[in-house]
C-alpha cells in the first residue's frame, strides 16, 4: 500500500458523512491513512464520493457544508473539526479542476501572493515565497502577465504556484490534467513528481487518465458507493479481480495484458507499452528456441 512505513500526515478514522440535502450517506465508515511523500490517485465512478472525500480533507466539510458526520479526520495531528480553515490552508493545499476558478488577480505574481497576503504575512517574506513558488513551477517569466493571457497549462501551473507559496505538507489536486493536451499533461505529472522528490510533500489526486498517470503513482485508491474498495500500488490493484475496477479507466495496455492472460506471472501487471512489448518479445524468443 504505497509508502506504508512513512509517517502518517492525514488520518481518516471511522468517517461517515451525509449532506443535509440527501437521504443517503455519501461516505461510509472510511478508515484511511495518507503518508508523507506518497503520491495517491483517487479514482471511482461519478458520484462515488471522491469530491466529498477531498472536501473533507481540506476542511470545507464540516466548516462550509451542512450535513451530519461521524468519526474523525486528523491532519498533522490536528482534528479538522477543531481547526480554522485558515490554519488548515497552511497544511493542506487544494487545486481546483479548472484553474480559472482559482486564479483571478491582475497578474500571476499577485495571484501567487494572494493566500499569503490574506494570512497577513510580512511583505519581504511574501516576496521570497512568491519568487520561490513561481521558480519551482517554471513561471517566473510570466510574473507580470494577466492570468487570462496564459495558456491552459500555464494557468494550471499558476494555480499550483499560489498553493505552493503557502508551503502545505499536502497537495490535493482535482483532475489536474483534464484540460491539458497529453504532452502538457505529462509535463505537469513530471513536475508533480519533482515537487514530491524536492519538497517531500504528500500528493493526493483525483484523476481519470490512468494511461498517463498510473506509472507515477505510489498508491491507487478505488472508491465505489462511498467506500474504499481497493487500496494498493497500481500493479497490485490491477491484478485484483474486482468488479468495481471495470468502471475505472485501467490503461489500455494493462487491459490488453489482462485479456491475453498468459504473458507473465500474476501480480506483475504491466503499466507501460514497453513492459508488454518486452513480454511479447520474450514469448516470441522462447517459441523460436523451442522450434529450433
Amino acid at each position: 500500500m504505497g509508502l506504508r512505513s512513512a509517517k502518517t500526515v492525514i488520518e481518516v478514522r471511522n468517517y461517515s458523512f451525509k449532506y443535509a440535502s440527501s437521504e443517503k450517506e455519501i461516505l461510509r465508515d472510511l478508515n484511511l491513512k495518507f503518508h508523507e511523500r506518497e503520491i495517491t490517485i483517487l479514482i471511482g465512478p461519478t458520484g462515488c464520493g471522491k469530491s466529498t472525500l477531498l472536501k473533507s480533507l481540506i476542511g470545507l466539510i464540516p466548516h462550509m457544508y451542512a450535513g451530519s458526520w461521524s468519526g474523525s479526520v486528523m491532519v498533522d495531528g490536528m482534528s479538522i473539526k477543531d481547526c480554522k480553515i485558515s490554519d488548515l490552508a497552511l497544511k493542506v493545499g487544494y487545486v481546483f479542476q479548472n484553474p480559472e476558478n482559482q486564479i483571478f488577480m491582475f497578474s500571476v505574481e499577485r495571484d501567487t501572493a494572494f493566500g499569503l497576503e490574506n494570512l497577513g504575512m510580512e511583505r519581504t517574506q511574501i516576496r521570497d515565497r512568491v519568487d520561490w513558488a513561481m521558480a519551482l513551477m517554471g513561471i517566473t517569466n510570466l510574473a507580470r502577465k494577466p492570468p487570462h493571457e496564459l495558456s491552459d497549462g500555464q494557468k494550471q501551473r499558476a494555480a499550483i504556484a499560489g498553493i505552493l507559496a503557502m508551503k502545505p505538507r499536502v497537495l490535493i489536486l482535482d483532475e489536474p490534467t483534464s484540460l491539458l493536451d497529453p504532452h502538457t499533461a505529462l509535463e505537469l505529472i513530471r513536475l508533480i513528481q519533482d515537487l514530491r522528490d524536492q519538497l517531500g510533500i504528500t500528493v493526493i489526486m483525483v484523476e481519470h487518465r490512468l494511461d498517463l498517470i498510473a506509472r507515477v503513482a505510489d498508491r491507487l485508491l478505488v472508491m465505489d458507493n462511498g467506500m474504499i474498495v481497493e487500496d494498493g500500488t497500481p500493479r497490485e490493484v490491477f491484478a485484483k479481480d474486482n468488479s468495481s475496477l471495470r468502471n475505472i479507466g485501467i490503461p489500455t495496455i494493462t487491459r490488453l495484458y489482462q485479456a491475453l492472460n498468459s504473458l507473465g506471472p500474476k501480480g506483475d501487471v504491466p503499466l507501460t507499452v514497453d513492459e508488454v512489448a518486452d513480454l511479447i518479445r520474450q514469448k516470441q524468443k522462447k517459441k523460436r528456441s523451442v522450434s529450433a
Binding site: 497529453p182 504532452h183 498517463l212 490503461p251 489500455t252 495496455i253 490488453l256 507499452v273 514497453d274 512489448a277
Partner: peptide, 14 residues
C-alpha cells in the same frame, strides 16, 4: 503535442 495511442505504439515496437 499528442502522444501515440498505446496499441499503435505496441504495433510499432514489436
Amino acid at each position: 503535442k499528442l502522444i501515440t495511442p498505446q496499441l499503435l505504439e505496441l504495433w510499432k515496437k514489436v
